[in-house]
Design a protein around this nucleic acid. Structure first.
Length: 492
RNA sequence: CGGGGUGUAGCGUAGUUGGUAUCGCGCCACGUUUGGGACGUGGAGGCCGUCAGUUCGAGUCUGGCCACCCCGACCA
């Protein structure tokens, strides 16, 4: 029925790829690991950007833009950060091509155009930004700096998947500078909550807020906060991170400020980011075997109207009603598409808009015109009902809210039902294989144990939940004492 | 980056012992249709991923490269 979409049960990862391509979100490009984001997919990303950007501005941040290239000497300044990213960097070594004398019509790298110093294509921008901040900060009066940038970054990943892990991806990265440790910690926690708010209330994807373990921490951070979401196949996806960077970058780039009592202090830093990976989370959280399911708040088209007619006169009668309805809906801020192209039949349009996840579909035919009704179909439940056209604008407005809430509730229920408390390693392994999801278990707090569990089961500690209750227990692996449970899962 | 697989029209595919390529969907034209991916008739569309080699002749055999998929390693 739905254009040969692989079902989730048949092959979950093929289903995901099928949706991305068939719903016109993105495509593979001629460049290894890099995708083309198509207009429909980009429309969703733009809606995400719009909401997030407003949230950043509302919390006092401003946007700026820093260069794509980072000179190697700057890149290596913060040692841990450089080390963490070294294995996945694209490097510019030359700045010119020339025609190849041995190969007519072909170009070659001009060996004489070798750069004195290599340029690193940013995998993240801390280095170039902190090098810049050095010039911006002298006194406590210059602080805080609350800057965000929307940008692309490159990480040379070995295995890529559309949206989930691409060699180049789009993201935003906030980089803030503060006078005190407390203020920086408050900032990184604040932005974590902004992310959680966005992902839950706009994307309708429930998350667990937590802290990363030392093993999973951002290279160069003192503490990494994260939000973790659970996909339909029971695998976890890190949806956003916020880092408390301590004074690591300030020290690496010698960024000091003069305090009120004329003392020099290193600046405290945070950085935080979410990427086009969120698109992957969105797709895998709500979609079904008929295609994409979009939460109304992010859908490029919230309502699609499909006319059903036999004659030109029939169509013009329908048009009259639809134009008015469309204007009324738009006046309420609802995005509406009237799909009146006569090159497709209604059945085809129904299937197509389902595949693309349009939250609400209106069918309106000559029969409806006589009866003063329309057919309302909702994407999340795939149900339809015939309702009076009078006052339907309010009905639709409420319906969109209902769908938004329903998607979140369904995902939340799934998350709760897929989170298991486990108290032995045997049970831990069994649960991972038989009922994938979050596993809440005791851990002795050592990187060694974490590493062993990862080696043996491929499960990692997703986070130490922020709202954790302390309880005495023993580590499922080592049997050593533990004071709290942490959240394990296999992850994307 | 290691192991395995795939690449033929926009998409999905067939192709035998080596002889310029099959079918379906889609596309175009006309007609009939239009409340869940319509039907008929006619038509167009191909450097068989790419580069080289073997051969009188390569989709088919050999090698390199590129891309994608799966499994590993890697992935703040």
């Amino acid at each position: 029925m739905s254009k040969d979409l692989t079902s989730r049960a048949t092959d979950y990862s093929k289903w995901y790829n099928d949706i991305v391509v068939k719903a016109d979100l993105a495509d593979h490009s001629a460049v290894r690991g890099c995708m083309v984001i198509k207009p429909y997919g980009y429309g969703i990303w733009e809606n995400m950007q719009k909401s997030l950007d407003k949230m950043f501005k509302d919390t006092g941040h401003v946007n700026a833009y820093f260069p794509l290239f980072i000179p190697k000497s700057l890149f290596e300044a913060e040692e841990k950060n450089a080390e963490g990213f070294a294995k996945e960097c694209a490097i510019v070594t030359h700045y010119r091509l020339k025609t190849d004398p041995n190969n007519p019509g072909k170009l070659m790298v001009d060996p004489e155009a070798k750069l004195e110093e290599e340029l690193i294509v940013r995998p993240t921008s801390e280095a170039i930004i902190w090098n810049t901040y050095k010039g911006w900060i002298q006194s406590y009066r210059d602080l805080p700096i609350l800057v965000n940038q929307w940008a692309n970054v490159v990480r040379w990943e070995m295995r890529t998947r559309l949206f989930l892990r691409t060699a180049e991806f789009l993201w935003q990265e906030g980089h803030t500078a503060h006078a005190t440790k407390e203020e920086a910690i408050i900032e990184s926690e604040k932005m974590l909550h902004v992310y959680a708010d966005f992902v839950e209330n706009w994307m309708a994807v429930p998350v667990v807020k937590g802290l990363k373990t030392a093993n999973e921490r951002f290279a160069g951070a003192d503490e990494t906060y994260c939000i973790e979401a659970l996909m339909q196949d029971g695998k976890a996806l890190q949806a956003g991170t916020s880092h408390f960077l301590g004074q690591n970058f300030a020290k690496a780039f010698d960024v000091q400020y003069v305090t009120k009592d004329n003392k020099k202090e290193y600046v405290w830093a945070t950085s935080w980011g979410v990427s086009t990976r969120l698109m992957g989370a969105l797709i895998m959280s709500h979609s079904d075997d008929n295609g994409l399911v979009l939460p109304p708040k992010l859908a490029p088209i919230q309502v699609v109207i499909v006319p059903i007619y036999k004659t030109e006169e029939g169509l013009s009668k329908i048009n009259e009603v639809v134009f008015k309805l469309k204007a009324n809906l738009q006046a309420k801020g609802i995005s509406v598409k009237y799909d009146d192209s006569d090159t497709r039949k209604p059945g085809w349009k129904f299937a197509e808009h389902e595949l693309k996840g349009v939250p609400v579909r209106i069918g309106i035919g000559e029969r409806d015109i006589e009866n003063g009704t329309i057919e309302l179909a909702r994407r999340d439940t795939l149900t339809k009902e015939t309702v009076a056209i009078d006052g339907v604008e309010n009905v639709i407005e409420n319906l969109l809210n209902d769908i938004q809430a329903n998607l979140f509730n369904k995902a939340k229920e799934r998350q709760i039902n897929s989170t298991y408390k486990v108290d032995s390693y045997e049970e831990f392994k069994k649960t991972l294989d038989e009922k994938p999801g979050f596993i809440s278990a005791h851990w002795d707090g050592t990187p060694e144990t974490e590493e062993k569990i990862k080696e043996e089961t491929k499960a990692t500690i997703r986070c130490i939940p922020l709202d954790n209750t302390l309880e005495d227990g023993v580590c499922i692996y080592s049997g050593k004492p533990s004071k709290q449970r942490v959240l394990f899962a296999r992850a994307y």
